[in-house]
Structures are given as structure tokens and as C-alpha cells.
């Protein structure tokens, strides 16, 4: 196997007085879609923030594309989509994309990117006129515009209808096939099956770091939801 795109070693994070991550170690393979699954409040967002380098950490290391997380050289190579859509609601969709394109030295691929997230004819609309799901896709488009080799997406499919979710997961796999690495968080177990690899995170501890098939085989469960339940109740975290 080639070198992982992301290597996390014994990561400990405190937020305020609360410990959020308890010595998490994992590796994210390059060119794959890795799912970060687990219940809300389990530390998923904190782990993603540590990967993109905006989270202050207590101890441990996070190596991203061969460099320490937060390294200035990584800033043109990571696309980050926060859980709440972080775009300018008082600008049009096109103006948002134009601004993020300027920040990422991205070429003028606005129409192409908008088509890929299923918003081909909304470029002229202001973001505050869009629905929640559409805003989330504008936020995703702003991360895609620079064509970064690593995409870190925090619950990008929340609130979308099943057809759109299927299309977006297809898009994620197309991007991975073209060489990008994706880390996608979700608290919906039925999305786990769409990932090449899974990280199961619960209460700040990692319960699994494997392919969906291997996790099913190992737990003997019928589906990933059952596997997760078994891992959480029976086993000590790895």
C-alpha cells in the first residue's frame, strides 16, 4: 500500500474543560473515500478540524499529505466543508464561487462545479434565497472549485433527499477515481456502506478502522448498523 494521505497518531484534544479525543490513531488511504461514522457529539468534527489544521491539539501528531496538519503548504491542497454551510448568504452563488476560486488559485470552473453538485441553474441566485440543502451544496462547491487533492467534508449530505445523496456519493467516488482523497463524516449508518473504508468514532475513541466488508466479517453482523452496535457494546476501543 502506498503512503496514507492522512496519518493520525495518538491524538488527544480537549475543548474547554472537556476531553473530546482520547488518543485516536488512524490512517486514511490516498485516492479513496473514507467515511468517518459515529453518533453526534462523538468527536467527528473535532477530528476533521485537527486534520485541516484549525483545531488546537493537546498531544499526538496529525500528518496530512506528508506534512504536519496546519502547515502553510497544505492550504492550497485541502478543501474543507464545515457542518453548517459556511458561505456568504448575502452574495450570489456565483460570487461565492468566484471568491473561493480566487483564494485557491482555481481556474474558472464555476459552471462545471455547479453542475457537479446539482445546481447548474442557480448561479445568479443569492444564497439566502436557497434551501438548506442547496446552501450545503454551494458550500461543497466552494471546496471543490480549486480541485484540491484532499477533501474533508463534515456531514455534506445532511438534509438532502435520497436521489441527491446518491448523486453526491457518486460524485465523491468519481473524485476519488480521479485521484483525490476524501474524508466524509456522517452519523447516518446507511451511508457507511458507500465508503471504501470506515472509521468508527464514538465518545472520542476509535472502534474500527477497516473496510466495510472486513468490519461485517469481523463482527458477524448483518449490516453496518448492527456491526457498529456490537463494536460499541462488546469491544474495547482499538
Amino acid at each position: 500500500m502506498t503512503e496514507p494521505a492522512i496519518a493520525v497518531e495518538d491524538l488527544v484534544v480537549h475543548r474547554g474543560n472537556r476531553q473530546v479525543l482520547f488518543g485516536v490513531s488512524c490512517a486514511v488511504p490516498a485516492g479513496r473515500v473514507t467515511g468517518l461514522l459515529g453518533p453526534s457529539g462523538g468527536g467527528k468534527t473535532t477530528l476533521l478540524r485537527a486534520i485541516v489544521g484549525v483545531q488546537r491539539i493537546r498531544s499526538g501528531t496529525v500528518t496530512v499529505l506528508g506534512r504536519p496538519a496546519g502547515d502553510p503548504a497544505l492550504r492550497t491542497r485541502i478543501g474543507y466543508v464545515t457542518q453548517a454551510p459556511s458561505v456568504y448568504t448575502d452574495l450570489s452563488v456565483r460570487d461565492n464561487l468566484r471568491y473561493f476560486a480566487a483564494l485557491t488559485s482555481g481556474a474558472d470552473r464555476i459552471d462545471q462545479v455547479l453542475a457537479s453538485v446539482g445546481l447548474p441553474d442557480r448561479a445568479a441566485d443569492r444564497v439566502d434565497e436557497l434551501s438548506g440543502g442547496e446552501r450545503a451544496r454551494v458550500s461543497l462547491a466552494c471546496a471543490l472549485i480549486g480541485g484540491p487533492p484532499l477533501l474533508v467534508l463534515d456531514e455534506p449530505t445532511v438534509g438532502l433527499d435520497p436521489v441527491l445523496r446518491r448523486d453526491l456519493w457518486q460524485l465523491f467516488h468519481d473524485l476519488a477515481d480521479a485521484g483525490s482523497t476524501l474524508v466524509v463524516s456522517s452519523h447516518v449508518m446507511d451511508e457507511a456502506a458507500r465508503c471504501d473504508r470506515l472509521l468508527l468514532l464514538r465518545e472520542g475513541r476509535l472502534y474500527a478502522d477497516d473496510t466495510p466488508a472486513a468490519i461485517l466479517r469481523q463482527t458477524g453482523a448483518e449490516d453496518l448498523e448492527g456491526a457498529f452496535l456490537r463494536l460499541a457494546s462488546e469491544q474495547a476501543p482499538r
Partner: peptide, 13 residues
Amino acid sequence: TTGTLERLFTTRL
């Protein structure tokens, strides 16, 4: 508060 600042700081800005 809307997270755009955090997002901007993940870019080369």
C-alpha cells in the same frame, strides 16, 4: 460566527 472565517483560514488567505 457563520464559520466563514474558519474556512478562510484553511485557505492560503
